[in-house]
Simulated scan of single mutants.
Amino acid sequence: MAPIPTPPAEPQDSPDTYVGLDSDAAERLARERGWSTVRSLAPGTVITMEYRVGRLNFEVKDGRVSRAWKG
């Protein structure tokens, strides 16, 4: 039987620290802190809710992060 893969570690980082930042600066900072995927979304965008380790989601309004969450 094949070994069970070990998922990559998720950065020890609070999504709340990105709220209020310029979206481009927030994305750069998130990648520097180790997030493998950063997704910027407009308010009300319909998305699937599957959880992905290492992904950080931003809701961006008027060029600023208004909400951020993992997965």
Rank of each mutant, 00 (worst) to 15 (best):
W69M: 12
V38M: 07
P11V: 00
P3L: 00
S36W: 10
P7W: 01
Q12D: 15
V46T: 13
R28V: 02
E32Y: 01
S14Q: 14
R52E: 11
I47P: 12
I4N: 07
A2I: 03
Q12Y: 03
G44S: 09
T17Q: 15
G54P: 14
I47K: 12
D24V: 06
P8W: 03
A68N: 09
L41G: 05
E27H: 02
D24T: 08
S40T: 11
W35F: 15
G34I: 03
E59Q: 09
P8L: 00
F58E: 13
T45I: 04
S36E: 14
E50C: 03
V65I: 06
P3F: 00
V38Y: 02
L56I: 08
G54D: 13
T48M: 09
E59A: 05
R64C: 00
A42S: 13
W35G: 05
T45F: 00
F58W: 09
E32N: 11
D24P: 00
K70E: 12
R55K: 13
V65R: 06
R55M: 15
L41M: 14
T17N: 14
G63Y: 04
P43M: 08
V46H: 07
A68W: 08
V38I: 01
I4S: 07
K70N: 10
Y51E: 08
D16F: 00
A26F: 09
S40V: 02
V53F: 04
R64E: 04
R64F: 01
P15M: 11
G54S: 12
G34T: 05
L56W: 09
S66W: 03
I4K: 09
A2T: 05
S40I: 01
I47G: 01
L56M: 11
F58H: 08
D22Y: 00
P15G: 11
V19D: 13
S23G: 09
G20T: 11
E10P: 14
T37D: 10
A26P: 13
S14D: 15
A25P: 00
T48C: 04
R28Y: 02
T17R: 14
M49V: 14
G71P: 12
A9V: 11
A25K: 15
M1T: 04
G54N: 13
R39Q: 09
L21R: 15
G44L: 10
